[in-house]
Design a protein around this nucleic acid. Structure first.
Lengths: 127, 127
DNA sequence: ACGTTGATTAGATACCTGTCAACCTAGAGG
DNA sequence: CCTCTAGGTTGACAGGTATCTAATCAACGT
């Protein structure tokens, strides 16, 4: 997607599919933190959080940018910038089909992030 | 904690205890995004993600700052700054006891964030 | 009262980020 | 080939942030 020259430095999160003891189970190592923090960072903006939600909750499993842009009081380039941020964080995928560009969520990494945050009730109870 | 004058503008997340359809179930409203994005943002730094993990995974349910600081190659003030960010995002609580200051996680908001990210397997399957 | 140690605050600085206006690119359709 | 439209990229600018040093504050021992 976008320009074909530089292979955008995607966070490689598919490397570790099963994955992820919770944050609260053991201390997350620096390397893991370095990989996952950018994903949280990407969600750390209200606009991007909404964009992510709109993409993830799309009935069709994907959304046209043309449906995203008018939902905000922001210019096209700004939305484009936010979408790029989500892309580079590995949270979404984009595909051009004809005139339009469609965004799709990457459930795997969402699961990974959720797992990191999830607090095992049993483990929590025993304190 | 810290200075007693200004009640630090904490994100009020205790207002909504049950809470939170997933990101992917329905589009998260702007107000929700505005409230939760700062929490994700706070976790969007590798150092803070590790700090959060160290605090949340502490055996005793809390950690002394004196145990956190030496774990990083950063100065005391910098760690203090990151801890303040976590505090202001509502992710942790701090308490001074004698000479030392102890940080404790706020599981409620962690659960809230995890819930937002969690993808209902059933819902995901039906697409 | 004084000095020491742990932690936060203040100020400075270099870098990063959100936003927009202007421009560019890719397809679609003549 | 030309033009129109949907998106993306560039460059600029204001504001935010991560980090440091220096100063301050708080509690403990002497």
């Amino acid at each position: 997607m976008s320009n074909q020259q530089a292979p955008i430095p995607l966070v490689d999160l598919d490397a570790d599919p099963s994955c992820c003891p919770s944050l609260a189970q053991r201390r997350v190592p620096a390397e893991t933190a370095a990989v996952l923090a950018p994903a949280f960072k990407a969600l750390g903006d209200p606009v991007r959080l909404q964009l992510m939600s709109m993409i993830a909750s799309a009935e069709a499993g994907e959304v046209c940018v043309c449906d995203l842009t008018p939902a905000f009081d922001l210019t096209g380039p700004t939305i484009s910038h936010h979408l790029r941020t989500l892309r580079e964080a590995g949270l979404v995928d984009a595909e051009r089909r004809g005139t339009w560009v469609y965004y799709r969520p990457r459930p795997q990494i969402l699961r990974q992030l959720a797992g990191l945050l999830s607090i095992d009730p049993a483990a929590a109870a025993q304190r």
